[in-house]
Amino acid sequence: MSVPGEIAASKQISLTTFRKDGTPVPTAVWHVAAGNTVTTVSAADAGKVKRIRRNPEVEIVACDIRGKVTPGAQPVRGTAVLLPPTETETARRLLERRYLSARIGGGLSRLLRIKRPPGIGIVITL
């Protein structure tokens, strides 16, 4: 299954992970869609990363920057994989190509040698 057009075209997606008791936890994230995968990056110590380690089943849907789901958007289930540090940097670069803010922030941190907080790439396969 390839990434639906509404998800690929949206600036943000709502990435829903699940707690131990099954409670859904949605989070708005930037993403890059390619083929049947969606890639994003998160802080390594974020709750969503901890939940993905325990349960890789996730759900994504198009949303706005505040996480409000686009009317009529259909959620899609997928399986998330956490990337090793070498591939996380590649995922950051993908996001920088798509988002100006990420490009500016990433460029400045490299130029000024500012150490970023540890991050981790997430690839969701639909």
Rank of each mutant, 00 (worst) to 15 (best):
A62D: 02
G105V: 04
V76L: 00
I65C: 09
T27F: 02
T79F: 00
G78T: 10
T86Q: 11
P118V: 00
A43L: 15
R113I: 14
A34V: 12
Y99E: 02
K68I: 12
R53F: 05
I60T: 00
G67I: 08
R98L: 08
F18Q: 11
L126F: 11
S14A: 14
G67M: 09
Q74T: 03
S109T: 11
P85L: 13
C63S: 10
R113V: 14
I65M: 15
E87N: 01
I124E: 10
V76Y: 04
L112F: 15
S2D: 01
F18I: 04
T17D: 07
I120N: 03
A8N: 11
A73C: 07
A46Q: 11
E6C: 02
T16G: 14
W30L: 03
G5F: 13
G47Y: 06
T17F: 12
T90I: 13
V69I: 12
L82Y: 05
I7T: 05
L15A: 01
G106F: 00
P118C: 12
G121D: 10
V49T: 10
R54T: 03
V61N: 02
I104E: 09
P24I: 04
C63K: 11
A33I: 09
N36A: 10
K68E: 08
S14V: 01
I52L: 04
V58G: 06
P71D: 10
R98G: 02
R19P: 05
I114E: 13
A33N: 10
P84M: 06
E87F: 04
R92Y: 07
L83C: 03
L95E: 00
S2C: 01
V61G: 07
S42N: 06
I60C: 03
V41S: 03
L111D: 13
V123A: 00
S109R: 03
P56K: 08
S101W: 12
M1H: 04
T17Y: 01
G119L: 13
R19L: 07
N55A: 06
I124M: 11
D21A: 06
L126S: 13
T40E: 03
E59G: 11
T125G: 06
V58I: 06
R51N: 01
V25E: 05
D64N: 14
E57K: 07
P56Y: 05
A80T: 05
P118S: 13
A8M: 12
K68L: 15
V123R: 15
T37A: 02
P71Q: 04
R97K: 15
L100N: 15
V69E: 01
A9Y: 06
V25T: 11
V32A: 08
R93K: 09
P56E: 07
T37L: 07
R92K: 01
G22M: 04
L82C: 09
S14E: 11
S101H: 15
A8E: 11
